[in-house]
Design a protein around this nucleic acid. Structure first.
Length: 495
RNA sequence: GGCGGCAUACCCAAGUGGCAAGGGAGCGGUCUGCAAAACCGUUAUACACCGGUUCAAAUCCGGUUGCCGCCUCCA
């Protein structure tokens, strides 16, 4: 089966065939750096991180470009508010972006261009648009003439006439058509400015992606992605500019991710109902946030709440718990221990079959428009089979062929989770980080907890189970659960 | 006003023509001094509603209701 992707342009799934066999040119709209990123940004970045990883897993050589919009009105406004210049603001939030994305375990794209490093390229495209009669100079700004491009509206599926009749169309006397958009914005005194044939100014928003995309990926790219809200006008305008200037198809496959909602409403700056990534990560493990994102299909809206995040956390804990159990109980083999398929299969044929068929099931899901939710479903089936196999041995460690089957299965689990960017930590490290994060909200410090565990240990040794249970109950009231094992007592916070 | 999307169990969520994945929560059980974790069993004659097409529909077509998004900066 070949990779199928939902193409916004076609409004249906299509077989993915790259322009050049074996290579993928991928462009994703990055962020405008004037503030910290919120979890809507996190979703978009994680979704395309998974797509990037999966394309590489399929063997493609992927050139992945994700830009920074480092000049725009919001950045300038922010700089004025803080009494500094646009560059300081942009650099600060680029730095913050990297901190957030690195903690989310997001891979760095191949190229991360800055808009301000590509002014010349934008000017060249605008000049070409003048030659083609699609640009005009008016009132100090340069505009794109939308009715020159008869494909205008093809991405967002609307007609120029319908939009004109719309209730909310910007009124600007300088525009020939209300839907015309700015290519070059003349600067007012004191604003950051670059020289251009039309006087000092700065680029309009849309032109940067045409310039940077074509600079690094050529005039036709395979995939261009971003949030659903960019379909119109941003991506529609990119198409209009690029196809008018270059005279060829700009993007073959447009991929758009759905929103993150809060209480069923779009999370956005203007509504003020957003959570920044860094705020969320104070209480939620970054991988749990990733799990949350990829538990749903990328095009659907997702609701962000304590409960939906907790579900992702519990699921991830389960995967790590099983992985840890295999590490603990099915220790490394001796150098000569190798077993045939038949022998492994005899240990537990269901587990063996699930483990050896995961790859096919996983790929079928992922090739169907990156259906990560379904892929994770298959992963959980394997997890349960592994844990069931371990449980057959009670609390005993596994040896020889049984250990080999457990390890083989756990490897399969880990490999596939890794393709999604999951299970990137050592199990113990994850579980430890996770419970410490959760402990914060209980009001109990780790030292107090250790002391209580020691007290209870003493009570248990003296068979004073009433006292031991009293301590257990006291902690349980604070959502802290103690877990006794032959190696001692550990704890976790229920979520 | 124009355009588009969604509606699956208590909750989250796959499934786009052939017996309704998976996760969470609940309940019963195994294990445990007691627990927890984990495992086992269990929880939708049924996919918003009404019609239609078909041997067969959650899935296709038409209509109704409800929710959401875009048309303005937005991931």
């Amino acid at each position: 089966m070949a990779l199928q992707v939902y193409n916004t342009l076609a409004r249906k799934k299509e077989e993915f065939i790259p322009l050049e066999p074996g290579k993928v040119r991928l462009y994703v709209c990055g962020v405008t750096v004037y503030d910290y990123c919120h979890i809507g940004h996190a979703r978009s970045v994680i979704v395309f991180d998974v797509i990037y990883r999966y394309l590489m897993h399929l063997g493609y050589e992927v050139t992945y470009v994700r830009n920074f919009t480092d000049i725009d009105d919001k950045i300038i406004r922010r700089a004025n508010q803080e009494g500094t210049d646009y560059r300081t603001i942009a650099d600060k939030y680029i730095q913050a972006f990297y901190e957030d994305m690195d903690s989310l375990g997001v891979l760095r794209p191949t190229i991360e261009p800055l808009a301000t490093d590509h002014i010349q390229g934008m000017i060249e495209i605008i000049e070409q648009l003048f030659k083609n009669g699609a640009a005009y100079h008016s009132g100090g700004d340069v505009f794109y003439r939308v009715d020159r491009f008869n494909g205008y509206g093809k991405l967002s599926g609307r007609e120029l006439d319908d939009m004109m009749a719309g209730a909310r169309v910007e009124v600007d006397e300088n525009k020939a058509n209300p839907l015309d958009f700015v290519l070059w914005k003349g600067s007012k005194p004191g604003e950051p400015a670059w020289e251009s044939p039309w006087g000092p100014g700065r680029p309009g928003w849309h032109i940067e992606c045409s310039a940077m995309g074509s600079r690094y990926l050529g005039q036709t790219m395979d995939i261009h992605g971003g949030g659903k809200d960019l379909v119109f006008p941003h991506h529609e305008n990119e198409i209009a500019q690029s196809e008018m200037a270059f005279g060829r198809q700009f993007v073959r496959y447009w991929i758009h991710n759905g929103f993150v909602n809060i209480n069923n409403e779009k999370m956005s700056k203007s509504l003020g109902n957003f959570f920044t990534i860094r705020d969320v990560l104070r209480e939620v493990h970054p991988e749990a946030l990733r799990m949350f994102v990829i538990s749903k299909h990328y095009r659907s809206p997702v609701d962000f709440s304590d409960e939906t995040v907790a579900e992702a956390e519990r699921g991830l804990e389960r995967l790590y718990t099983t992985l840890d159990a295999v590490r603990e109980r099915a220790s490394e083999p001796g150098a000569n221990e190798e077993f045939s398929e038949d022998i492994l299969k005899k240990q537990d044929s269901e587990l063996y079959v699930k483990a050896s068929s995961l790859s096919a099931a996983f790929n079928e899901a992922m090739q169907n428009d990156f259906n990560t939710a379904q892929a994770i479903g298959y992963i959980f089936v394997l997890q349960r089979n592994i844990q069931r196999f371990l449980d057959k041995f009670g609390r005993k460690n596994l040896k020889g062929q049984a250990a080999a089957l457990a390890r083989m299965s756990a490897d399969v689990l880990l490999t596939h989770c890794n393709i999604l960017g999951l299970l990137q930590s050592e199990p113990m490290e994850f579980l430890d980080t996770q419970r410490k994060l959760k402990l914060k909200s209980t009001g109990v410090t780790e030292d107090e907890l250790k002391e209580l565990i020691a007290l209870r240990h003493k009570a248990r040794r003296e068979k004073d189970f009433a006292e031991a249970d009293r301590i257990r109950k006291e902690l349980d009231g604070k959502r802290i659960q103690l877990e006794d094992s032959p190696d001692g007592t550990t704890w976790r916070v229920s979520i």
